[in-house]
């Protein structure tokens, strides 16, 4: 049997997938009937990246939840 232990994707691959997901989201809203959602998605995308960054900082993470 082969080793079932997963090999996690590298950092570049991980960021690439996230950008791909955001691209799909923009396409979904831009191409569909709801282009008015695009600005919100852009805002949330920025917020999401900030959140993801802040959560990695040990001393800041506990304060994120009350901010939202």
């Amino acid at each position: 049997m082969s080793d079932p232990t997963p090999t996690p994707p590298g950092r570049v691959e991980d960021v690439g997938m996230r950008l791909g997901t955001l691209g799909q989201l923009l396409r979904l809203f831009g191409r569909g009937k709801r282009p008015w959602l695009l600005p919100l998605v852009l805002l949330l995308s920025v917020l999401g990246l900030v959140l993801a960054g802040l959560q990695a900082v040990q001393y800041v993470a506990p304060f994120i939840y009350p901010l939202l």
Partner: peptide, 22 residues
């Protein structure tokens, strides 16, 4: 919603690769 989705549920593709090794 913003919190749970932006930090977790939106990134299923990444989680499947990272956690399951796909």
């Amino acid at each position: 919603t913003a919190l749970t989705w932006l930090t977790d549920k939106l990134w299923v593709r990444n989680a499947l690769c990272k956690e399951l090794g796909a």
